[in-house]
Design a binder for these strands. Structure first.
Length: 217
DNA sequence: ATTCGTCCCCGTTTTACATCA
DNA sequence: CATGATGTAAAACGGGGACGA
């Protein structure tokens, strides 16, 4: 990690001397000078500029980061960290939205499934009036059965997918089935989870949007 | 095939700040 | 109003895999 270490050292030394953040410049750490973590908040203008850049390019290369850092009076490593944290933040946001959507969709499917079950349970032969059996179900009923099976599969699939986010099976989750949540919207700025360069690992093909609904605690 | 440098993601730590009892 | 506990977001960091030279 030569570059990173160098940059880190430079950043550390610089902040050691002038605490470039400004906000906490008066803070003194008389002991453990070499161990403490230098922490400060970036300036609102710096964040605003990086946010703007992020919208167009979530994966700036070294040259872009250096230019940005010079422009904003920041260390390149700080810019790098900021973009890294921002991508993580956006991904978390997206995952939460996706999870909320899947919950609602799952509840809707369960309700639909219940309705189909009810219809099938009350089905009777139109000719003789007795309860219908598999042999004499109408085409509509067969269609309902197929649809029911399909919904079951879908519920299982979604439940499995959602449980990856929640950590437990979705059937245990109490959800208020209200208005359906729109499918996650597009951020419109490229595949930044996957990485615009070919270097990123993993296989995130997600997109993202702003204005996440805060998940209830 | 191996090594090296750099990148990124992921998870974690540290710090500042807000909220609430 | 002050104060301590608690939660959360942001900045920084370390580890490890991927990739190209």
């Amino acid at each position: 990690m030569s570059e990173g270490d160098q940059l880190r050292r430079i950043a550390d030394e610089e902040m050691e001397t002038n605490n470039s953040g400004g906000e906490n410049a008066e803070m003194n750490y008389p002991e453990n000078q070499n161990k403490r973590k230098r922490y400060h908040r970036h300036m609102p203008e710096q964040i605003q500029a990086m946010e703007q850049f992020f919208r167009d390019c979530p994966h700036p290369d070294t040259k872009q980061r250096n230019e940005l850092s010079q422009e904003l009076g920041m260390d390149p490593i700080q810019v790098k960290f900021w973009f890294q944290n921002k991508r993580t933040q956006m991904k978390t946001k997206h995952d939460r939205q996706e999870n909320a959507y899947l919950r609602v969709e799952n509840e809707n499917l369960k309700a639909e499934n219940m309705r189909y079950r009810e219809v099938l349970g009350n089905a009777s032969c139109p000719a003789c009036g007795r309860m219908a059996s598999i042999g004499d179900v109408s085409l509509d009923d067969r269609h309902l059965r197929m649809e029911n099976a399909r919904l079951r599969e879908e519920i299982e699939r979604i439940s499995a997918a959602a449980s990856r986010y929640v950590g437990k099976p979705l059937t245990n989750l109490a959800v208020a089935p209200s208005a359906s949540v729109p499918r996650s919207t597009s951020l419109g700025c490229g595949p930044f989870f996957k990485g615009s360069t070919s270097k990123a690992k993993g296989s995130n093909d997600e997109e993202d949007s702003d204005d996440e609904p805060k998940t209830a605690p």
